[in-house]
């Protein structure tokens, strides 16, 4: 996928709520406009990450199925 990524978060093997919790922690260290890629295999992350974006006002860019896990792209907009 043609998205410029600034930081990668490996949440493979983690379960709810850790992918979201680490995402919040990572986003705190990032600048507005930067993109975080989250790799996760927790099924809940599929709906949790877009829901998190809706609640926090950050932008959900895309998700990509990589077989055993998914990549989620989130842009820090707030």
């Amino acid at each position: 996928m043609d998205i410029q990524v600034d930081k990668v978060q490996d949440s493979i093997g983690q379960m709810c709520p850790m992918p979201i919790a680490f995402m919040a922690k990572n986003m705190r260290t990032m600048e507005t406009g930067q993109v975080l890629e989250i790799r996760a295999d927790d099924e809940g992350a599929h709906s949790d990450i877009p829901a998190w974006c809706e609640q926090t006002g950050n932008e959900f860019l895309a998700e990509e199925d990589c077989g055993d896990y998914c990549k989620y792209y989130v842009k820090k907009t707030v």
Partner: peptide, 8 residues
Amino acid sequence: ATGAAAAG
């Protein structure tokens, strides 16, 4: 609690 805090 962690979910809520993560969501700001």
